[in-house]
Amino acid sequence: MKPLTLAALLGLAAVAGTAQAADPNLARNLAATCANCHGTNGRAVEGAGLDPLAGLDKAKILQKLADFKSGVKPATIMHQIAKGYTDEQLDLIAGYYAAQK
């Protein structure tokens, strides 16, 4: 078991019961909504033509997502997807992928 996740789970025990507290695995859960195309934990299938996100620099991921949102970076679909998430959510997602080895 990865120590990080255990810590997160133990941390949750303290807040359990307060339904509105953010889930400690929120970043993981949000990032998983991208995995259908970018691979489980951001490890895309090699040669399938979709970009892996695992281990990318967090600031670079955020910049690309901001550019998709604003339309600066041309895209077939990411402009429509990025607009569905708040900036806070994209920050969590980018942090999660950046932390994947």
Partner: peptide, 15 residues
């Protein structure tokens, strides 16, 4: 199963 509340803010997306 760990005796905790579910995530109160889930997101799903479709393509």
């Amino acid at each position: 199963l760990a005796g905790q509340e579910p995530n109160p803010a889930p997101v799903v997306m479709n393509t």
